[in-house]
Write a protein that binds this DNA or RNA. Structure first.
Length: 245
DNA sequence: ACCATTGCTACTTACCTGTT
DNA sequence: AACAGGTAAGTAGCAATGGT
């Protein structure tokens, strides 16, 4: 009962904070900060004809062209670039001057949040690229997977989930068993893929990406083995003593 | 972050479950 | 208890290609 009250109270507080944050950011975006100008290389890039060339190739080719340019040829772009940068700095300062301390803090907070989110995303992608296995599917996830195959396309995503969840809760334990079994199977898959992942990380010197949960599990097992050995030693000693009596 | 464009990725929804 | 991450699919947003 008490926990329920606390939960509701905290939730409305959180909601109030979110609304507040929403209005703050809405206010900030209505007074848009100046945009960062293009540097010399980008100005040069804009002058080049990109018709029909894939973007990455186009950029690569013109980067090479840019490198081969003499200082004199680069000069107009560099000049224009530093001019617009100077103007941008002034505009940015002017923009900051229109903000209150609170708004400045809000701006900083938003930037920090964006940075953090970006960092998190990158770490996640890095792990993925290192071959991190997907987490094992829960029984419910297995059910969702098999169930969504033959649902009408017209059903909206939210409706799909509501329907699947409702059906899942209607299933009896014996009907769910099939999916519990699948989940157990997938756990095995995860376990073996994780072993491979960790051994690859170790051989590549990327130990910092070994999941902490894997390490704690490892320590737990080592401890178990040690304890078992100690017990076995005690047993051996005692049987030896008994034999000598 | 700025330029652009392609193709890929992650977020969004509701819900459940494994991990910490 | 709180959090993260799993299910699908449409789409919003981002990485890739460069230098400043």
């Amino acid at each position: 009962m008490f926990a329920g009250i606390t939960f509701t109270w905290e939730r409305s507080l959180l909601q109030a904070f979110r609304v507040h944050q929403h209005y703050c950011s809405a206010f900030l975006s209505s007074q848009a900060p100046p945009k960062r100008p293009s540097g010399s290389f980008l100005l040069f890039l804009k002058d080049q004809n990109s018709d029909g060339i894939p973007r990455p190739l186009f950029t690569k080719q013109n980067a090479e062209k840019w490198r081969l340019l003499s200082d004199e040829e680069k000069q107009p772009y560099i000049e224009k670039g530093s001019e617009s940068m100077k103007k941008y700095r002034e505009e940015l300062q002017a923009f900051h001057d229109t903000l209150s301390d609170f708004e400045l803090d809000q701006l900083k907070l938003e930037k920090a949040q964006k940075r953090e989110a970006r960092h998190k995303r990158k770490q996640k992608m890095l792990k993925k690229s290192l071959g991190r296995p997907k987490q094992p599917l829960s029984a419910y996830a297995c059910y969702t997977q098999s169930r969504s195959v033959n649902l009408p396309v017209s059903l909206k995503q939210v409706e799909r989930f509501k329907l699947i969840a409702a059906d899942w809760n209607k299933l009896s334990e014996s009907e769910k068993q099939e999916f519990y079994d699948k989940a157990t199977e997938d756990k095995e898959r995860y376990k073996s893929e994780l072993e491979e992942y960790v051994s690859n990380l170790r051989s590549n010197g990327r130990e910092e990406f070994i999941p902490p949960s894997y390490l704690t599990q490892l320590r737990r097992e080592e401890k178990k083995i040690k304890t078992a050995k100690r017990l076995q030693n005690l047993i051996d000693q005692n049987t030896e003593r008994l034999r000598n009596l």
